[in-house]
Amino acid sequence: MSEKKGSLSALVFLVVLTSLCTVFLSFTNTMYQGVKAGRQRELRMKIWEDFDNDIDLTAFDREFSEAVSVKENGKNIYYMYAPRHLAALHMIGPGLWGDIELLMLIDYENKMINKLYVLSQIETPGLGARISEQPFLDQFSNLDYSKTVRIEKERSGKPGEVDAISGATKTSKSLEAIINAGLKTFASFGGKEAKP
């Protein structure tokens, strides 16, 4: 009898504690979501500038939403700017240690990558982390992506190839996979449907 009472009070204690924790966490999470929205707006401004527009702070949100069509797919977000056939692909995918976050600007009419930014990554310092270095990223400027993008140790001279970083096979493969998956999804709804 007393055992039953003991387990009942244990259950009540757990339920109360769990609810308290959940309420507390929901509150913290709401705060974080606010900050996150602010950061996303900053990223949109960066993209807007990369589309070669000036930022008018008062009208930015309206201008952006009128001119750019936004599509989401999982963690990836695709921004399409029809007037100049430009698009920005905000892609997140797994690397060796954690997420690699990329922003890639493409010209989808000519199937060219204009620029690649690594927004964040936590690959091995000195090895995989070198994907953030400018000489590596510069290779992606004006890269033809009409086939697939390949990050190779030994290049064969075909279009769409980039030199890999030695000693960082897994990171190179991950990066390649993120970019190609992003481009593929973009092609599946991007190229066809332009905003009027």
Binding site: L25, T28, N29, M31, Y32, V35, K36, R39, W97, G98, D99, E101, S120, I122
Partner: peptide
């Protein structure tokens, strides 16, 4: 969550 708000870079680094 607090780290994500205050030091986003390091927070991503800790994964």
């Amino acid at each position: 969550l607090v780290l994500r708000i205050l030091v986003p870079e390091v927070s991503k680094g800790l994964g």
